[in-house]
């Protein structure tokens, strides 16, 4: 666990679905070093989104541990998670439901800056029109977007707003859960470039969740392959993709279309 920015050890997550237990994650050990870019790939039901929620303290493991900067965070009440909340952010898959439809873009982006718990960290920028304008510029959006509402923006623009919101608190780690899967193919490159630049400029650690292997190969150094709640293979991206050991990895690679 030492030196890891985010980590889980033997984590298990079990849900109850109509009385029957459903194991979403089974014995998952995962480490993210500062500045590292890790891709998490797998089909639906692989548990990758559950892993993301676990790392960010949104759900509790039924067994195992979750830690941030070496400190355990699983099982802590919300008020003791200040460090985690300030240090890690998330970009969600669906640009439609991840932004409050009745909130202006400027308020959406600056929401983390208004949180008393985050402000306790001390180094947060003040909530000001300048801070919001700077955040919009950093994701390539016009400053006039501040007073618009999400439904007035395109899908790609909404994701940019989501990214701006994730970056405004100056985190050390970014968890992106299929951030471009809901966007048109022709629009993905812009958002991916943006993510890549932001991560590089700020030296962020990145957990990139996707079922699109081409994108993972482009963005990440390491990859973790998941199937039905278990980690079935992991390693350097180029190694794993060139010489996949596990049949599921091979299945994923074969299914990937290219032109």
């Amino acid at each position: 666990m030492n030196g890891s920015l985010m980590a889980t050890q033997g984590a298990e997550v079990t849900y109850r679905r109509s009385g029957r237990p459903f194991v979403a994650l089974h014995d998952v050990t995962f480490r993210l070093a500062p500045g590292e870019r890790v891709g998490v790939v797998g089909g639906s039901g692989s548990g990758k989104t559950t892993l993301a929620r676990l790392l960010l303290g949104l759900i509790r493991p039924s067994a195992g541990t979750v830690s941030f900067r070496g400190q355990r965070v699983d099982g802590l009440p919300e008020r003791l998670l200040g460090d985690l909340r300030a240090g890690a952010s998330m970009v969600f898959q669906d640009p439609n439901s991840s932004l409050n439809p009745r909130m202006e873009v400027g308020d959406i982006i600056s929401e983390p800056l208004r949180s008393p718990r985050l402000r306790r960290r001390g180094d947060l920028p003040e909530v000001s029109p300048e801070a919001v304008r700077a955040a919009l510029e950093s994701v390539g959006l016009d400053p006039a977007t501040t007073s618009r509402f999400p439904h007035q923006l395109s899908g790609g623009q909404r994701q940019r707003v989501a990214i701006a919101r994730a970056l405004v608190s100056d985190p050390e780690a970014l968890v992106a859960d299929e951030p471009v899967s809901a966007l048109d193919v022709s629009v993905r490159a812009q958002v991916l470039n943006l993510l890549s630049d932001a991560v590089t400029e700020r030296g962020l650690a990145l957990v990139f969740i996707s079922h699109d292997l081409a994108v993972v190969r482009h963005l990440c150094e390491r990859v973790v392959v998941m199937q039905q709640g278990r980690v079935v293979e992991e390693g350097a991206v180029d190694d794993v993709f060139a010489d996949p050991r596990h049949p599921y990895t091979r299945q994923l690679l074969e299914a990937t279309l290219s032109i």
């Binding site: 669906d94 439901s97 932004l99 929401e111 208004r114 949180s115 985050l118 989501a162 919101r165």
Partner: peptide
Amino acid sequence: SQTFVEAARLSATP
């Protein structure tokens, strides 16, 4: 149940 509420939770919004 909407994602933006989860996002608010991640922003440590009271």
